[in-house]
């Protein structure tokens, strides 16, 4: 009897603990909605349509519907939303084919002896902190892009506004490329695992019909793994949309203008929240905190939708080893 009770208690305690995941999501969403309420009331839909972000930190305090805000302040998310979507879009355009290519090399082309060290490098790629990608971006990628682009595309480059210090003249292309690198291991590892799950019988059927290696990959393996591959790309997109530090370092820190070329400085919602740390403290009306919460809420909504779709696509129970969990 006591034993039975012990098991029951154990069961319900652990059940509550597992439910923490659920609770946390609701807490996050709840807090963000609650905190962004003042901004929603004061600025309404202008938040989504304006490209200007001006907190008027030195002005005086006005009241709308009893809510304090700085007189004449404007908060428009459009620049940051555009930057987020564009940089992630470029990351997908470049990163997804490259990552799927890497996955094909790992699953189909490279002999096992070579595939496992390459896989290790790829896993390491997933483990390198975001801020280090950004640092490398400043040190290597941005100067490289600048020097090669200046040679090759000088007429395009003339339209690039120069930012303070040559090193920080980064922007959309650099952000897209860094993000492409960062989402590669996610896409590649899931795609590789999905391709490796193709039944050997189907591949042998293809081989026995006289298909070349590439035809087996293209006609048999890729169709079989298609859903998971698309899901992995969606997961990569989710990661790119929310990626913060790397982009913060190479995006160029734009505000109040939209990018006109690939080389324009941009800013993303995630990076901008980091940049606004000071404003959050110095806004006497406290409105900046609320507006940033609204931006975080928007980012949360976008990444959650993308991630939910991705999870539905990447087959359930697909991850079978704990060490593969991190990339997924």
């Amino acid at each position: 009897m006591a034993r039975h009770l012990q098991d029951t208690i154990y069961k319900y305690v652990t059940m509550c603990l597992s439910g923490v995941a659920l609770a946390l999501i609701f807490i996050i969403i709840g807090v963000l909605i609650d905190s962004s309420y003042p901004a929603l009331v004061v600025y309404g839909s202008k938040f989504f349509t304006s490209i200007t972000w001006n907190a008027e930190l030195t002005g005086s305090i006005c009241y709308t519907s009893g809510i304090a805000h700085m007189c004449g302040a404007t908060f428009g998310v459009l620049v940051y939303l555009t930057g987020t979507l564009l940089s992630s879009g470029i990351a997908l355009l470049i990163g997804a084919p490259a990552a799927v290519g890497l996955a094909i090399v790992l699953a189909e082309i490279a002999p096992r002896r070579l595939a496992s060290p390459i896989s290790f490098v790829m896993e390491l790629m997933a483990g390198i902190p975001s801020v280090i990608y950004g640092f490398w971006g400043i040190l290597v990628l941005v100067p490289y892009l600048k020097s090669t682009l200046e040679v090759g595309l000088s007429h395009s480059l003339s339209s690039v506004p120069i930012f303070s210090g040559a090193v920080f003249s980064a922007g959309l292309l650099a952000s897209g490329l860094i993000l492409a690198l960062m989402i590669t291991p996610i896409i590649a590892s899931i795609s590789r695992d999905a391709m490796r799950q193709t039944p050997e019988g189907l591949k042998e059927a293809g081989r026995a019909l006289g298909l070349t290696d590439w035809e087996i990959t293209y006609k048999v393996v890729l169709p079989y793994a298609r859903t998971s591959i698309i899901g992995s790309i969606a997961l990569g997109l989710g990661r790119a949309l929310g990626e913060t530090m790397a982009v913060a370092l190479v995006c160029g820190g734009a505000s109040n203008f939209l990018p006109k070329t690939f080389f324009y400085p941009i800013n993303t919602m995630a990076a901008f929240i980091v940049f606004q740390l000071d404003a959050a403290f110095t806004d006497p009306s406290g409105m900046s905190i609320s507006v940033l919460a609204e931006m975080a809420l928007l980012l949360m909504a976008i990444t959650m939708i993308v991630n939910v779709v991705a999870r539905l696509l990447v087959r359930r129970g697909f991850v079978s080893r704990p060490e593969n969990l991190i990339q997924v």
Partner: peptide, 21 residues
């Protein structure tokens, strides 16, 4: 499902919510 979704929440959002709360 929610654990997987939670793992996908951008860390800056966790940071900002942590700041707020």
């Amino acid at each position: 499902f929610f654990a997987d979704v939670l793992a996908g929440v951008p860390s800056i959002i966790l940071g900002y919510v942590g700041f707020l709360v």
